[in-house]
Amino acid sequence: CGNQDCFRLIVLGDSTVGKSCLLHRFTEGRFPGPLHSDPTVGVDFFSRLVEIEPGKRVKLQLWDTAGQERFRSITRSYYRNSVGGLLVFDITNRRSFEHVKDWLEEAKMHVQPFQIVFLLVGHKCDLVSQREVTREEAEKLSSAFGMKYIETSAKDATNVEESFTILTRDIYELVKKGEITIQDGWEGVKSGFVPNVVHSSEEAVKPRRQCIC
């Protein structure tokens, strides 16, 4: 990271909701096409730098998880070290929306004792005519869970940038307020130089831990 802050985010959701395409769009600026990326097995890694306010850049380390149930025992181990998550469903696939609460439960159970800041993402919003989930019900669900909702399309790049930036900014605010603190042995947030974070005295005397990102 050098002197950059570094957040680890995880991307969750059913198989084929478009998690990998969303990440390709975000990190490479291109859409591989749903038929051009083979199913993710286990977990894939991505990364990108985002600017959340003028002059303030945060390095994101992104874990793209496999949607299939059988990989759960592998993907689970990545929750713990994530500070934020995109909970993705496909607006043209009702089932994937219904599973959102299962994904959330799963994540909450395995992130203990830490917490994850989530953003609910309704993906494939370019496919308007095939929509099976209305914006209203998605918003209702997201507010019930206390998270924000955004609709994205990796195909035409709608809100892809925004979704990651919003989540990152929210996390950054929590870090600034001290509601999320950097801890040894936890990879969710690593700090290069966060002036507003209050460190415990013990931390302050220790040499700053080398950030690996």
């Binding site: 390709h24 490479e28 291109r30 990326s37 991505f46 990364s47």
Partner: peptide, 11 residues
């Protein structure tokens, strides 16, 4: 520069 590769298409 950006560390953003797409998995190479090799199959």
């Amino acid at each position: 520069q950006q560390s953003l590769p797409l998995r190479p298409v090799i199959p």
